[in-house]
């Protein structure tokens, strides 16, 4: 089996994506290919590359982390900030962030969580 580059794999998966959803069959194919070619460790990188390819096509996957979940008004604000043709949300709820939001998009990260601010205060300690 020829070894495909991550970029090619990502473009293949991105081509099959509709409305930000990857068909289940494509996911199975990807999993089988990575397992067969002993490249399962590359999965996080492959996912990132897929997100990069989608972002180039105006389809941005935003990983949003909050302490209590997202409501629609926040999503709208995030969409406005990202300014892309389509924005897909990968939401995560993490109480340890205390409050605020962390938005990660391909190439950009906005960390406005309270825990980040507290940590930046802590890191400003006199040495």
């Amino acid at each position: 089996m020829p070894k495909l580059s991550r970029r090619k794999i990502a473009e293949y998966v991105a081509n099959t994506t509709k409305d930000g959803v990857v068909p289940t069959g494509v996911i199975a194919e990807l999993a089988a290919y990575l397992a067969d070619s002993h490249r399962t460790r590359e999965l996080p990188l492959v996912v990132r590359t897929i997100e990069d390819v989608l972002a180039e096509r105006g389809q941005v996957v935003a990983r949003v982390t909050t302490a209590r979940g997202l409501d629609d008004s926040i999503k709208q604000s995030i969409r406005a900030q990202i300014n892309a043709k389509e924005v897909y949300f990968a939401e995560a709820v993490d109480p340890s962030v205390i409050g605020g939001v962390r938005v990660e998009t391909p190439g950009k990260t906005l960390d406005a969580t309270i825990i980040r601010k507290l940590n930046s205060i802590r890191s400003a300690k006199a040495s």
């Binding site: 604000s77 605020g100 939001v101």
Partner: peptide
């Protein structure tokens, strides 16, 4: 309050 904080941060 959290939502207000998030909105303010995004703005």
């Amino acid at each position: 309050i959290d939502n207000k904080l998030i909105e303010a941060s995004l703005n």
